[in-house]
Design a protein around this nucleic acid. Sequence first.
DNA 1: CGTTCTGTTGAATACCTTCAATTCGCGTGG
DNA 2: CCACGCGAATTGAAGGTATTCAACAGAACG
Lengths: 227, 227
Amino acid sequence: MLKENAITAIPLFRGLSQKQLDELVRTFPRQRHGPGEVIFTEGEEANGFYILLAGMVKVYKLSPEGKEQILHIIGPGEPFAEVALFSETVFPACAEAIQESEIMFFSRKGFQRLVQDDPSIVMNMLAILSQRLKYFTRLVEDLSLKEVPQRLATYLLFLAENEGSSDVSLRISKGQLASLLGTIPETLSRIMSKMSAQGLFEMRGRRITILNRRALGDLAAGQKLVL
Amino acid sequence: MLKENAITAIPLFRGLSQKQLDELVRTFPRQRHGPGEVIFTEGEEANGFYILLAGMVKVYKLSPEGKEQILHIIGPGEPFAEVALFSETVFPACAEAIQESEIMFFSRKGFQRLVQDDPSIVMNMLAILSQRLKYFTRLVEDLSLKEVPQRLATYLLFLAENEGSSDVSLRISKGQLASLLGTIPETLSRIMSKMSAQGLFEMRGRRITILNRRALGDLAAGQKLVL
DNA sequence: CGTTCTGTTGAATACCTTCAATTCGCGTGG
DNA sequence: CCACGCGAATTGAAGGTATTCAACAGAACG
C-alpha cells in the first residue's frame, strides 16, 4: 500500500539523500488506522509527532457539549502534532483517521537523531510551522469575521484552485465539511441549497460544479448572500 | 527608555552570550511608534520580522466591513510577524502600536547572520512558533465552540493566573478586549454587566476583582450562564 | 432487502449584532 | 477650579444568522 516514492514527496524531508530516506523508512515505526479510529486525544501525553503516509486524518477539538471543530484535514506527506515536540508535553487537540491511513511516528529522540544527521530538517520544520500559522490566521479570520456562505465560497474556490478545475470533489463528508467551516450539518445543508438554487454551483453528492465563479468570488470577498 | 536587560529577557535569544547580545543591540535598527500608529498592514511586502522591546502592539485582521479581530496582543520581549521569514513574502495580518512602543527589526539577511552565529536561535524560534500554534488552537476553539461569556471567563482566569491575584487589570480597553474575544463592545458590555450583577466579579473601569472563582471556572469549562 | 449512517427540511429559539441614543470618564483650556 | 469636548462605554429596541430539536428522505453497505 505504501509507495516508496511517497517518502520522497514529504516536505519535511526535502533535501535528504536517497540513502537517508531509505534509512528513515527502515528505522521509524508505522501504524495503520481504519476510518473512525482515534490516533490521540487532547490532553494525552505526547512523546513525538506523526507523518501521514497514506490516507486522511482530521485534527479537531471537541466542546464539552460534543460539538466538533476540525482544525486541519491532513493529507499524505503532511506531518501532524509537531507542536508536541517543541513546547508541549500533551496534545493540544485530537486526531482521528477518516480514511484507512498509514502513519509514521517520530519520537523526540528519533527526531533529534534526524536533526543531527541533517540540520536542514530544522529549517524545513520552521517553514511547515509557518505555513500552519498562516493557515490558522485565516481560520480565525473566517470564524470571526465571515458568515457561513462566505466561508463556503472561499473553500470551494480554494478547492477549484487546487484541482485546476471548476468541477471539484469535496473529499470529505458534508458533515465533516460543516465542522471544518465552523458550523453544523443542518446549517451547511440549508446554505448549500440556497447557493445552488441561485446558480452558484451544481451539487451531485460530494461533487460540486462551479457555475458562477464570479459570484462565488464576490461572496468570498465579503459580499452578502442575497436570498 | 530601553533597559538593556530587556534584551537578555527575550526568549528568542535565550542562550546567547552577553557579547552576542551587545553586538545585537548595536547592529539591528529600532523604531518607535506612538499609540494608534500602524506598523504594517496585511498584504504588504514582508522582508523580516520584529521584536517588541517596550510597549504593546496588537496584531489583527480586518473584515471588508471594518470589523476587527485581534489575533494577538504582543508584550515586551515577544517577536511578531515571524511567519514572514519562512513561508511568506507578505504579512498575513496587520500590526498597530496600542501604547508608545519600541521595536527592533530583523531583516531576512540579518536573521540568517544571527543563525550562523548561533544555531540555537533556530530551536528557540521553533519553540516560539509552537507556542503560537497552540495559542491559535485555543483561539479557534474559543471562537467556534464557546459563547462570549465562556470566552470572557477563560480570559479573566488566565489573567488572574498570570498575575497571581484575583484582582487583575485588563491592560487593554474594553473595545480591544471585545475584538480579542471575537465580539463587539456592546455585546461585551452587556455580558460584563450581567456577570458582575451575578457576583462573579466586580468591575471598576479596567480593574476587575474576581469574586467567585468557582463560578468563573464552571463557565470556562462550558457551563451556561444563567440569566 | 433491511439496517445504518448521511443528508435534508421545518419550526422554534438563542445568541449576537446593528443602529441609535445616552452616559461616563478624563484631559484640556478657559 | 470648573466647564467643555471628545472618545470610550453603556443601554435599549429591533433584526438577522445560526443552532436546536425533531422528523424524514436517501445512499451505502452488508
